[in-house]
Nucleic acid binder design. Structure first.
Lengths: 180, 180
DNA sequence: GTGCACATGTAACTCGTTACATGATTGG
DNA sequence: CCAATCATGTAACGAGTTACATGTGCAC
């Protein structure tokens, strides 16, 4: 699918080893894409075999060697082609939405608790992303090129979390009102 | 995963055959969950074997027979248990976001075109959902129980599409400005 | 009897997750 | 030398997609 391409983008930003990529996917790139180290190793192996990336063993002091991957010329071409290709519009897929819709077929109070817990979680992420934006991009008006892209995708993360907080808030509020 | 549970919710709303479920998943339930008929048949078969649903052959005039599924007592219990269980907070996963972040490693104008096309798509869906909400739920303040849940999940669909339209708009606007 | 829509499936494959395995290096 | 961390992987499985297969009933 697209993990290959997400890795190409990440490696163009900065060559890295498998574990380093996994750590990055838990942070910045993780607002919109997630991957475990196992899967990353698997895909990196295939990309290496296909000549999209090149691997270099790098010795470290105090730690075992690592294999640092960088995008090859062929990989750059693959990435450029993929970037220009149309993307099918992706459907939302939410387990929580299924629960919200089905709440009346179980214990509604329990579902409302699940919704509340999820809302808290998204509120925490929202706060985190907003602090991140303030710290990493203090003057967004001045940004251009890749730095602007990074900022705008973080904006997408913020908007996503805000969507969740507002929607779940609407759900809880409407049910409190309906109960009265 | 949770297709089982989405099917239980759909069948509690209204017993149906595999194809009818597939059609419903393309419409109302489809704002937040998608499934093809192939996958639905597979999962329905397993659910039948597990005793979560019961199948009844129904003759139709002018069409071949169909197998109508309904939730069994055991299925009701499974659904109630699942509804009360905590849901892990789901990460956003967006191929388009990867392209937006990686735009400077390819033809930026092409990426902007992809973004524009996706925006139009979401705008169309937004209009559709808003019309649907007005038609199906003209007086939302009066709703309670399952009808309220249905309305609020449709609200989630509307909010999702609005998120996309606004975010992609911000992306396009910021890049137009940066180009000047 | 041929083509079309309805209806139910199978088979092969890809993507991703979970659990487990192996080895390097260093601090105690 | 033993536990802890870093680093790289394998194996088994499950969910979902794509392509294909089979059969019914009706309109032409």
């Amino acid at each position: 699918m697209a993990l290959e391409h997400a890795l190409l983008v990440a490696l163009r930003e900065q060559p890295a080893s498998g574990l380093e990529l996994a750590r990055r996917f838990e942070r910045s790139i993780g607002y919109f894409w997630h991957a475990t180290h196992q899967q990353i190793y698997k895909v990196l192996g295939r990309m290496d075999a296909d000549g999209w990336v090149t691997a270099t063993a790098v010795a470290q002091s105090g730690k075992p060697d690592k294999k640092v991957y960088a995008v090859s010329a062929a990989g750059e071409g693959v990435l450029a082609d993929w970037l220009a290709a149309p993307t099918p519009t992706e459907p939302l897929r939410s387990e929580l939405a299924v629960k919200m819709r089905g709440a009346s077929y179980g214990d509604r109070a329990a579902v409302l608790d699940v919704v509340r817990a999820t809302l808290v979680d998204h509120q925490v992420r929202l706060d985190h992303y907003e602090r991140l934006a303030k710290r990493e991009h203090p003057t967004p008006e001045t940004l251009t090129g890749h730095a602007l892209d990074q900022y705008l995708v973080l904006r997408g993360g913020i908007r996503t979390e805000r969507f969740w907080v507002e929607w779940l808030g609407e759900y809880l509020h409407a049910h409190e009102k309906a109960e009265r």
